[in-house]
Design a protein around this nucleic acid. Structure first.
Length: 870
RNA sequence: GGGCGGUUAGCUCAGUUGGUUAGAGCGCCACAUUGACAUUGUGGAGGUCGGAGGUUCAAAUCCUCCAUCGCCCACCA
């Protein structure tokens, strides 16, 4: 059924443009009873896109606008968007739309990330299903497959971003492996290289056997696991004794090149400098003293395996020990491990070694032991630490700049507690392994002379002769860069860097970065370091950090466990706005929160409420322009003044909340207004009085305020209304402060409202021949009160609200309930009044608090007066 | 081993600089019914704000300690 046609047959969609021609009364009949998002979302997005307003250069008065920019965290081209992306997009779209409406040159740059290892794994998995390995088809063919994948998922992701209503500038879309961005990556790498900040070296790296690549510290997960601690006895070569070492990986002893003890450890003082015999292999290795050894752990002596443990590597450096690789890149034992073990997996070898040690009596004892095991966060397999030639970035100088900027508060972080986290991480940063033994990614711009192997860094293959040996043939390094290298440049590479473009000058540093805390180190920290290094400025002025979306049980959503909620099917079912709202309602910055379909359904209900409020309002005759406040009528314009004051208040509060990134508070105010003020009261009063006519004005203003949060439905109503201009560029005015008069009208109305609710609670509405007498100073509303409660009221002179005497037809039960209610209400108010008076006369309380208390006391007095004397 | 966060109604969560009678949604109960809206309306019940102490005229909010759940970091061989 079409959203614009009640009971229309078939699936004919009425294009939004056609609605422009519908008159208001017609609309009442034409608009479906429930909001049907699927009919409007795609055409509305197309219309937004056609308008060109996503591009700040094409906004009205573009040149006079103040820049506001956001770089979208580029989703990986690995699959579909999940709710985390939807949250990213929603908060950033709210900000972008808000600033656009406030008159800024709002630029939101979209894009996608090639996501090196993640994407390569997906494609490899796909090929493996067809029985093909990447080694069979070779690098070039494999990359063709990945590009195909990228095209498919890249396009799909763009469609999904659009579906979520993101108002980003597609004319500036980027992909991390675009030629322009590839150039940025090369430029950045070469600059670091020239500045001596990248180096190549053989280090112990985290090696993922499944993916055949080294990975960075951040890509490793540590898990506590039950294992065994084996105590192995090494005999001193001179026969003067023995040293026992403890290990959880006995197979690595085949690669031991020393035993280390603490220099102050008396137990081993005599042994230092001597040699021990490695059991099984019979090799002689020295005993060295090193402060890194904890004398209290295990036996106090540690076996040193420089090639397969980074701590041991450091010890070996200090003592000039040789490195012996016994585990190969395939995760199997090498020739160096000995013929007996070569080709075994580490686990098989471990069993064999333990067995042998037991046979020869070198195994002193074994005990169960819980320790942490390193896993590759991508492939979920155990990491083998091993020696490998890799490229590193010296991060200390980069981190120093970042730390200075953070400490100088050059970047505002919302919520602030995350800045400490960043600072601590940067403080303890270690060099960054940026080379990956992958095929998908930016290949290192490093060339080696085929004759002498001397490296040359260059954008293209060098044509000159090798400086070392004069040869002129080169081969490029096989490795690619860590995917975070290119995304670290994102805020400025997407604006044209290294070219000095107008965009770059105008929009960098970007205004806000919005992201989840989970990629703070991976991405945010690196962007800060890179931007300060390459641009000498921060990449963004503010970081807004949102929490992660959890499933209904409070666990991270996981595709493999099937606990995730896909945003796109949900958009079809409940509408995009419902999803966007459900991601923002009841959340706090940086705080993880649970998501459920029920919550989305609840927000759908809100959208539907708005839809129906609009149906009602649009059916009312359009006033020529904003009408004057009602003077006569039973409310004497009180309701009008009240709703306008509330609207002014709402406008100010929502603006303020948005400036502070308090999305949840902003939407909370907006929803309360619609439900509790506009629909439940103002419209009810309108029905009763038929006298107020500010409805159009209020709805128009409300749609502007709600638009950043729920862009589709607000724009749909706007179009249905027949507005020519798009809502997305309506002006969001500067907020005004409430006048004293307005504040008063809010108070007066709220008093009135309380009275009505009180009467309703008595359930004395609806009866025909009951009549109560209201004798009240606020004579504003006896008639209205009658209409709202269904009870007849007569007005007499004097103060107080009382039940009329016997002469009126009020049955005994009602009368008693009413009197009891009056008494209760009076008691409560008296207690309240006393408190407030005490506070007002409290000389230690600050003046503004006392004034407020005085006003509250006054208010309570008024209400007491209305309730009348005992 | 360090650090961070949570603990507020039956459930999921807001709560800005300490200052209204601590709020919302869902759920529950009662009532309403062709109304702009059953994707509805009205009302209700339900809270010692994890515990103890402290600061303050005033604490869900600030401080200390404790309990408990969760997360992050760390070369415990």
């Amino acid at each position: 059924m079409s959203v614009f046609r009640k009971g229309a047959e078939g699936n004919q969609v009425v294009p939004p443009d056609r609605v422009l021609k519908l008159s208001a009364t017609l609309l009442m009949r034409e608009l479906a009873k429930t909001y049907n998002p699927n009919d409007v979302e795609t055409p509305i997005y197309e219309r937004w896109e056609r308008s060109g307003f996503f591009n700040p250069d094409r906004l009205p008065k573009a040149k006079r606008r103040k820049p506001f920019s956001i770089a979208m965290p580029p989703p990986n081209v690995t699959g579909d968007l999940h709710l985390g992306h939807a949250l990213d997009l929603t908060t950033q779209d709210i900000l972008t739309r808000f600033h656009r409406m406030r008159g800024d040159a709002a630029l939101w740059i979209p894009g996608t990330d090639h996501a090196g290892i993640a994407t390569q794994i997906m494609v490899e998995r796909l090929l493996r299903e067809g029985g093909i390995s990447r080694y069979q088809i070779g690098r070039e063919t494999f990359l063709r497959h990945v590009w195909e994948w990228k095209k498919k998922y890249g396009e799909r992701i763009v469609e999904q971003i659009k579906r979520l209503g993101a108002s980003c500038d597609w004319s500036r879309e980027h992909f991390t492996m675009d030629p322009a961005l590839t150039k940025a990556v090369k430029t950045a790498f070469l600059k670091l290289y020239d500045d001596g900040l990248v180096y190549r070296g053989e280090r112990v790296v985290h090696w993922c056997v499944a993916d055949r690549t080294g990975i960075s510290d951040l890509e490793v997960d540590h898990r506590q696991e039950e294992g065994t601690l084996w105590y192995v006895r090494y005999e001193l070569a001179d026969g003067t004794g023995q040293i026992t070492v403890a290990t959880v990986r006995p197979e690595t002893m085949l690669g031991d090149t020393a035993v280390a003890v603490h220099p102050d450890d008396r137990r081993f003082r005599a042994a230092v400098g001597k040699s021990v015999v490695l059991p099984i292999t019979g090799r002689l290795v020295p005993v060295v003293a090193d402060a890194a050894v904890d004398p209290l752990f295990g036996s106090g002596a540690v076996k040193v395996t420089p090639a397969h443990d980074s701590a041991d590597f450091d010890i070996a450096e200090r003592h000039h020990l040789p490195r012996l690789s016994v585990v190969g890149l395939d995760g199997r034992m090498t020739k160096e491990a000995g013929d007996e073990f070569q080709g075994l997996t580490t686990l098989q070898c471990r069993e064999r070694v333990v067995e042998k040690l037991r046979e020869i009596g070198a195994l002193e004892r074994e005990e169960p032991y819980t320790h942490s095991v390193a896993y590759c966060s991508r492939s979920n397999t155990v990491i083998e630490p091993l020696l490998s030639e890799q490229w590193f970035v010296k991060t200390k100088p980069l981190a120093a700049k970042a730390l200075r900027a953070l400490r100088a508060k050059k970047i505002e972080i919302v919520p602030d507690r995350f800045s400490n986290l960043l600072v601590r991480w940067l403080d303890h940063i270690r060099d960054w392994n940026i080379s990956r033994q992958l095929w998908w990614g930016h290949r290192l711009p490093i060339w080696y002379c085929v004759a002498c192997n001397a490296p040359v860094a260059a954008v293209k293959e060098p044509v000159k002769r090798c400086r070392q040996c004069g040869n002129n043939a080169f081969r490029q390094d096989e490795d690619t860069l860590d995917t975070w290298f290119s995304s670290g440049l994102w805020t400025f590479s997407t604006l044209g860097w290294p070219e000095n473009t107008r965009d770059l000058r105008r929009f960098h540093p970007t205004s806000v970065l919005g992201t989840g805390w989970d990629i703070l180190f991976f991405w945010v920290a690196r962007m800060i370091m890179f931007s300060l290094y390459f641009r000498k400025e921060v990449p963004f002025k503010t970081i807004y950090i949102h929490g992660l979306v959890l499933d209904e049980r409070g666990k991270k959503m996981s595709k493999s466990k099937g606990t995730g909620i896909d945003p796109i099917p949900m958009a079809w079912k409940y509408g995009t706005d419902a999803i966007r709202l459900s991601l923002v309602v009841g959340t706090a910055p940086g705080q993880d929160f649970r998501m459920s379909e029920q919550k989305i359904a609840g927000q759908r209900n809100f959208c539907n409420k708005l839809w129906n409020v609009s149906r009602y309002v649009l059916a009312q005759p359009t006033p020529p322009r904003r009408p004057p406040l009602a003077k006569g009528g039973s409310t004497g314009g009180v309701a009008d003044r009240w709703i306008l004051a509330r609207l002014t208040e709402l406008h100010a509060r929502v603006t303020d909340h948005l400036k502070r990134f308090q999305f949840s508070l902003a939407i909370g105010e907006l929803q309360q207004f619609l439900w509790a003020d506009l629909a439940d009261w103002y419209i009810e009063i309108h029905k009763a009085e038929k006298n107020t006519s500010l409805l159009h004005h209020v709805l128009r203003h409300y749609l502007i305020l709600l638009h950043p949060f729920a862009p589709y439905i607000t724009e749909a109503i706007w179009m249905a209304w027949g507005k020519q201009k798009l809502l997305m560029i309506e002006e969001w005015r500067k907020p005004k402060r409430l006048t004293a008069q307005q504040k008063k009208s809010v108070r007066v109305f709220q008093r009135f409202r309380r009275l009505v609710v009180g009467l309703r609670n008595l359930k004395i509405h609806g009866a025909d021949n009951r009549e109560l007498v209201i004798r009240s100073a606020s004579a504003i509303n006896t008639r209205l009160l009658s209409q709202l409660t269904g009870v007849g009221f007569a007005q007499t002179q004097g103060l107080g609200l009382t039940v009329a005497g016997q002469s009126f037809v009020v049955d005994q039960a009602v009368r008693e309930r009413f009197l009891a209610w009056l008494a209760r209400e009076r008691r409560r108010l008296e207690v309240y009044l006393k408190q407030k008076q005490a506070l007002a006369s409290n000389s230690k309380a600050p003046d503004n608090i006392r004034e407020q208390a005085l006003r509250d006391a006054d208010e309570a007095k008024h209400r007491l007066a209305e309730l009348g004397p005992e």
